[in-house]
């Protein structure tokens, strides 16, 4: 192989590597629970995160005129208030497993997208869950 070609290949591979792995690092969206967030707050600031847990009973406030939705997401240990703009999906209910994609904004989590598992073999989570079980719910959602 000629050195000229070798040089070209190295440049192309480097560019590709940067494109893929640089881009991947910046665009990884972590699935976390409220407890995990409080373990390492700095890590999840100002980046896209999927926050999963249950919708705390009695915490849902939805104004259909302004389409402002507020609720508290909990994993049984810690809680995080969430604000979101838009109609909640039909499966969105209290005590329901939910995953919100969005960013932390101070103490509050600003949701951009609400995900509720919409497959037919959806498993409704009940009370009496453990954090590990919740993790599983999050994984199942989307």
């Amino acid at each position: 192989m000629k050195p000229k070609h070798l040089f070209g290949i190295v440049v192309v591979v480097a560019a590709l590597g940067y494109l893929i792995f640089g881009g991947l690092g910046r665009n990884l969206v972590y699935f976390i629970t409220p407890s995990e967030y409080f373990q390492d707050q700095a890590r999840y600031q100002s980046r896209l995160v999927r926050l999963g847990g249950l919708v705390k009973a009695g915490s849902v406030q939805y104004n259909k005129e302004t389409l402002a939705l507020r609720f508290v997401i909990t994993d049984g240990v810690r809680e995080i208030p969430v604000s979101h703009s838009g109609t909640p999906p039909a499966l969105f209910k209290e005590n329901q497993g939910v995953v919100v994609e969005g960013r932390f904004n101070g103490e509050e989590f600003k949701g951009q997208e609400l995900l509720v598992k919409h497959s037919e073999d959806y498993k409704a989570p009940g009370a009496g869950y453990s954090p590990e079980q919740l993790k599983k719910i999050i994984q199942e959602t989307k």
């Binding site: 409704a124 009940g126 009496g128 869950y129």
Partner: peptide, 11 residues
């Protein structure tokens, strides 16, 4: 769904 709640049903 009370049984589900009492028994910590997963699904």
């Amino acid at each position: 769904g009370t049984v589900g709640v009492d028994y910590g049903m997963y699904g």
